[in-house]
Simulated scan of single mutants.
Amino acid sequence: MRVLRSLGNKFGLAWWAVVETREPKVTYWFGPFLTRNSLERKLSSFMDDLSFEGSPPVNHRMLRCRRREPLTL
């Protein structure tokens, strides 16, 4: 499965979530995922983890693209 996600990302077919927080001001890239549905299923847990750590997300969007490091800005 990891190989498929890597190939999907390489060709710009992978699904990613861009999650932004205000305090601290950080942009997280969460992915890659093969389908939008699988991203949606995992995204709420990721956002809950950020909130638990004291950085509640203020904005997020899902997109299909190719992404490289860095995954946190």
Results as ranks from 00 to 15, higher is better:
C65Y: 03
T35K: 07
F46A: 03
M1P: 01
G12S: 11
S38H: 07
C65D: 12
W16P: 07
W15V: 07
E69Y: 06
W16V: 11
L43F: 07
D48R: 14
P57L: 05
W16A: 06
S6N: 12
R68I: 08
R2N: 15
V18P: 02
G54S: 06
M47G: 03
A17D: 04
F46S: 02
D48G: 05
S55P: 03
V26Y: 09
V3R: 15
V26Q: 15
R36I: 00
R36T: 00
P32I: 04
R61P: 00
R36W: 03
M62A: 03
K10A: 15
V58Q: 12
R5N: 04
E23H: 13
P32W: 03
R2C: 08
M47T: 05
F52D: 10
W29E: 02
W16E: 05
L7Q: 14
L71V: 09
R67V: 14
K42Y: 07
R22S: 13
R41I: 00
C65K: 05
S55Q: 11
R66F: 10
V58H: 07
L71P: 01
R68H: 12
V19W: 00
M1S: 12
G12C: 11
F46Q: 01
R61H: 11
S51Q: 11
R41S: 01
L63Y: 01
S45V: 06
L50W: 00
R66I: 00
E20Y: 01
T72D: 08
N59E: 13
S44K: 13
V18F: 09
